[in-house]
Design a protein around this nucleic acid. Structure first.
Ligand SMILES: [Mn+2]
Ligand SMILES: [Mn+2]
Ligand SMILES: [Zn+2]
Ligand SMILES: [Zn+2]
Lengths: 165, 165
DNA sequence: ATTGATAATGAGAATGATTATTATTTAGCG
DNA sequence: CGCTAAATAATAATCATTCTCATTATCAAT
């Protein structure tokens, strides 16, 4: 497979197995294209856009179409192995859930870096607030936009372009 | 102005004044179209889509174009008098901030109702978590998706369409 | 009131991410 | 192998939003 892609992690391999179990139960078929897309996706890290994924998939098999990447990503979400994110940059991003299934994101508006956070107290508080309004939470989205001021990547970017808002 | 629109609240009038102050400082001009759009917008309540706003603006002055509504909304956001929201229904929504400037939303996936919440402890916790990662928050987005199970609007919708996921 | 510089508008074209369509290919299974 | 349904690739369509550009309006200076 692609040279610059790392090895599949244990957890990724399990996700792939879960995915196949899901498609089997749904009476869906196994295809080479999906195999390639899964393999590439789970070797990437971070919050991956369709385009980022497609660009690498292309290097493995240039004949795979854009629509198939979209379809496979949707299937991955449906199967519960991957989550869709929208950070407001105009496109969906996907991530195989981290160890912590429910986490929030801090998004640096200056350098684009994304930090993740999780806090038990926060989860509890959310549920309490929902209860008060008789609301049943299916999932949540918690994003903090700002700047990772002291981080080197951000500082570097700032130096290059000091006029950044 | 349009018959079915209410009276401008004190706070809305202040927002309109602030907007004019902003445009003045920016060397921008005052136009009838913006006046109409502001007036309509601030008489509406809730989380308003561009289309919803445009539909009413049309009834006041049918010659106002869609692009002008977009442009005015962007100006309102830039001026800090209005906030943009994206709840995942494929379009932006806008709200003149409520009394509580920073609040979260609970969005019912069954009936579409939107509840707002605010909690001081939550805000404090967020800041603490951001501090730990040396992150400076400009603004945040906190959305809980689920169902407002015991609310009548939701129950009604459910009864009409019991097959709803 | 007139003018001139420039911002604003309106109509429609363009954009860009995503989804739908359709003819063709492929997987799964007896 | 041969059938049937699912999957694919290529491409067209969709749809919210943004852009273009010719025309009009604002406003400060005259
Ligand atoms: Mn994440
Ligand atoms: Mn709100
Ligand atoms: Zn940064
Ligand atoms: Zn509801």
């Amino acid at each position: 497979m692609s040279k610059k892609l790392g090895k599949l992690s244990e957890i990724s391999e399990e996700k792939i197995r879960n995915f196949h179990e899901y498609t089997r139960l749904q009476g869906l078929k196994t295809t080479k294209q999906r195999g390639t897309i899964l393999d590439v996706f789970f070797r990437m890290k971070g919050h991956i856009s369709v385009e980022e994924l497609y660009d690498i998939v292309k290097t493995v098999n240039p004949r795979i179409g854009y629509a198939t990447v979209y379809r496979t990503l949707h299937l991955l979400v449906d199967s519960g192995q991957v989550e869709e994110r929208r950070f407001g940059d105009g496109m969906s991003r996907y991530e195989g859930h981290s160890e912590v299934e429910r986490h929030g994101h801090m998004i640096c508006e200056e350098c684009g870096q994304i930090l993740e956070f999780f806090n038990e107290e926060l989860e509890t508080l959310q549920i309490k607030l929902a209860d008060e309004l008789e609301f049943d939470i299916h999932y949540h989205r918690h994003e903090l936009f700002g700047s990772c001021m002291d981080k080197s990547s951000c500082a570097k970017r700032r130096k290059k372009n000091p006029k950044l808002k």
